[in-house]
Design a protein around this nucleic acid. Structure first.
Lengths: 222, 222
DNA sequence: TGTCTATTCAAGAAAACCATTGAATAGCAC
DNA sequence: GTGCTATTCAATGGTTTTCTTGAATAGACA
């Protein structure tokens, strides 16, 4: 094989990893899978696509090595194949946010106005946890909480929050979190809680960043 | 705009950054640009494509924000638009190397057998530099050395090395470096030098990694 | 001004991609 | 074994990518 052909092959292979992420629906899948493993059907409803289409996207991710599968009964659970994939996804988001023209506008359009929401950083939350007087609230869908969550967090999916407000201790401050910078569940949750007289803030980033920083977690998550 | 449509828009926008890297020729361009800015024509010969095609690829990278341009005389110099792009490219390589099936084989096919070459790490080279008894040799093409190089390095492009061996001091050990893990210039250089009785080793990674680690550099590089 | 050069633009054909549809498969429950 | 369910496969049509070719443009320099 000529040197030139070998070089093309090499860079084509490297580009495979990017090709896998080069579709909006697959990017969405990776973002959801960053929360933990999920079966195909759930992923399909999550990204609003047919099961067949979702399956094909998942297999493309599988072929490119970004995800792996595990069979349990009749279900196939997909998950990211390792920490470097988390890292890749983070780098992609950061690069896009910094350099893709107009992205910030699109983010703002999607997440809405966050200026009225109190936001605290990972570091601040850690400090509060040491002090003790804080309730950490996971507002993601149940399966994602089950797959892994911040240690000590309680789970109330945002869809159930209004009817389950009573479960939240009243004497402590609440910190809600969800998937990450593009997830609005925690935003909604904070609005609901402050609207009901509770002291609430949202964690700046989500569970994957918490886990990536090797902070304490619980659940199935590796 | 519906929430669903806004979400699709957001992830489509994120996928843009990946689309930019999802082509082997563009990946190759980014890898070359990681060495420093270059005009279109040089990039075209570097990746073995026509100027028109290269220009189109560069403009795709430009539209996605990964690169920026600077005009000087009749030439347009392209360069990566910031540190997060370096970071993204590194994450892509790492993810592909770890998870793309068969990539390691392709790398081996391209770079050949490195087991006979003495390799030293960045840390080791730093230590040697403090001791003083080492010559750092940049074997990349001239323009890349000019765009930025390890501080104190001398430049002898590998294509000229055989005829310019006399310029290398004989009493010191030589450490050759080039672009990075997929670059074979330093490999070739070490083979040439050891074949001529010189003490030579190759630096494990290349100039971009050195610069990214904020180790001392010289040249135009930002 | 006109010429030269580096770069960009435009059009077209082959290939790859993507959502949709309907059928096929694999494992569980009975 | 038969049904049932979650997932995958295969075929199709519309869109996007990618390389090629040839022409157009913008600035340098005389």
């Amino acid at each position: 094989m000529s040197d030139h052909a070998a070089k093309e092959l090499l860079y084509d292979a490297l580009a495979q990893a990017a090709k896998a992420l080069s579709n909006g629906r697959r990017a969405e899948l990776v973002d959801v899978l960053a929360q933990g493993e999920r079966p195909v059907e759930e992923l399909a409803t999550e990204i609003g696509q047919t099961v067949a289409n979702t399956s094909q996207h998942l297999q493309r991710l599988l072929r490119s090595g970004l995800v792996k599968t595990r069979r349990e009964g009749t279900s196939v659970y997909y998950s990211l194949s390792g920490p470097v994939v988390h890292e890749l996804w983070r780098a992609m988001r950061q690069s896009a946010e910094e350099h893709v023209a107009g992205l910030q506008q699109i983010v703002d359009d999607y997440v809405g106005d966050r200026s009225q929401l109190r936001t605290i950083t990972r570091d601040t939350l850690q400090a509060r946890l040491r002090d003790g007087n804080v309730v950490v609230l996971d507002v993601r869908p149940g399966p994602e909480y089950a797959a892994g969550h911040i240690r000590g967090a309680i789970s109330i999916p945002v869809s159930d929050l209004t009817s389950r407000l009573g479960e939240i201790p009243e004497d402590a401050e609440v910190v809600a979190y969800c998937r990450g910078p593009y997830c609005v569940y925690a935003d909604d949750a904070v609005r609901i809680m402050t609207g009901n007289g509770l002291e609430a803030a949202r964690l700046e980033d989500g569970f994957p960043e918490w886990a990536a920083a090797h902070l304490p977690t619980e659940g199935r998550s590796p």
